[in-house]
Computed example of a mutant assay.
Amino acid sequence: MAQEIEIEFKNLLSEKEYYKLYTHLSFETVDRIEQTNYYFETEDLKLRNKGAALRVRQKNDTWTVTLKEPHPDGLLETHDQLSKETADLWINDQISDAPNVDNQLNKLGISTSDLRYIGFLTTHRKEREYKDTLIVLDHSFYYDESDYELELEASSKQQGEKVFDELLSTYHIPKRQTENKIKRFYQAKLKSE
Rank of each mutant, 00 (worst) to 15 (best):
H124R: 08
T62Q: 14
K10V: 01
S96E: 11
L45M: 11
T29W: 00
E8S: 07
E149Q: 14
R184C: 03
N100D: 06
L12A: 05
T178R: 13
D44Y: 02
L75Q: 13
Y148I: 00
Y171L: 04
D73F: 11
L121W: 11
Y18I: 00
E166C: 07
I7E: 01
D102W: 03
T78Y: 02
V136P: 05
Q159C: 04
T86I: 15
R48Y: 09
N92H: 14
N11C: 15
L13V: 05
Y22F: 15
Y143W: 09
T64C: 11
Q94F: 04
V30W: 12
A98V: 10
N180M: 05
A188Y: 08
Y143C: 06
E127C: 04
Q104L: 11
E4C: 00
L115A: 05
S146M: 02
H124D: 12
P99S: 06
K183W: 07
L152Y: 00
D88K: 09
L137N: 08
D73T: 10
S146C: 02
H71F: 06
N37Q: 10
Q187P: 02
F120A: 14
K68W: 02
G160V: 15
K16I: 01
Y171N: 03
P70E: 03
I182K: 01
T36E: 13
N100L: 07
K126C: 01
